[in-house]
């Protein structure tokens, strides 16, 4: 069985808008996949379905052997513990330090304090923020804040890292650094990465698998894809 498997997924919102129509796709363990498309093309819905922020109207979404579509509300947290999510707007807690923000994820899981520290320090080291553990988010640059968000996403060693426009708020130089961090996590920790993005340069340079979603339909699946093959997006 594939690590991620979407079969005939449909999503229609209560407003009547169809976000995804009959979408089927398979993703292997350890893959690095870009999801591209216009704004409102359905790529955000696709991403949100993977961590069960949205439920499909029809079809099945299987992540790591679990049918997310049929997962009970009370059990959703168990799925989320296996997934790390990186956001465009970082979603850091402003009143917590870098260390506390990363440790927060583990504290929610009820880990022992002595187990939390080494894990947090390791995650912070991976994203290269060892010198800033005691800083507060407002004392950091955008790129540094995104690193904290990545550290928080990987601190529990998830099998899947979902990135929703992680470089959307960053300048090209910082974006490159962030992509390097994410790429290393994919290579070194064998974490599957699925990333929604608008950043042409990144997609073209990385030469990874690309899924193109247009008007809720998967119109392209390129193994070593780039934006060049569909310049109109």
């Amino acid at each position: 069985m594939k690590f991620i498997e979407l079969k005939n997924v449909n999503k229609t919102y209560s407003t009547g808008v169809t976000a995804l129509a009959d979408l089927s796709v398979e993703i292997e363990k350890g893959e690095f996949v870009f999801v591209i498309g216009h704004t409102a093309s359905g790529k955000s819905t696709f991403i949100k379905m993977l961590y069960r922020e949205e439920k499909p109207t029809k079809g099945s979404v299987i992540v790591g052997g679990v049918n997310v579509a049929k997962l009970r509300n009370r059990k959703v947290y168990k799925l989320r513990r296996k997934i790390g999510v990186v956001f465009q707007d970082f979603k850091l807690l402003p009143k917590l330090t870098v260390y506390e923000n990363v440790a927060f994820a583990l504290e929610c899981l009820g880990l022992k304090a002595k187990d939390i520290k080494p894990k947090v320090m390791k995650a912070i080291e991976i994203v290269g923020l060892k010198e800033k553990t005691r800083s507060f988010p407002h004392q950091l640059s955008g790129g540094e804040q995104q690193r904290v968000c990545i550290a928080r996403a990987i601190v529990n060693e998830p099998k899947l890292l979902i990135c929703d426009e992680p470089t959307g708020n960053l300048d090209p130089e910082t974006s490159k650094e962030i992509m390097k961090v994410i790429s290393n996590i994919n290579k070194d920790l064998k974490t599957t990465v699925i990333m929604a993005t608008h950043d042409k340069e990144i997609v073209n340079r990385m030469k990874k698998r690309v899924l193109l979603i247009e008007h809720g339909v998967l119109t392209g699946d390129y193994l070593k894809g780039s934006y060049k093959s569909h310049e109109n997006v």
Binding site: Y51, R74, Y77, K78, L79, R80, R81, K82, I83, V85, K91, L93, F104, A105, C108, L109, G110, R152, N156
Partner: peptide, 17 residues
Amino acid sequence: RSEIEIMRLVGGSNAAI
């Protein structure tokens, strides 16, 4: 509410939140 949202996303159980 953002704090609650983050707790949910990192896998905090309802009771823990």
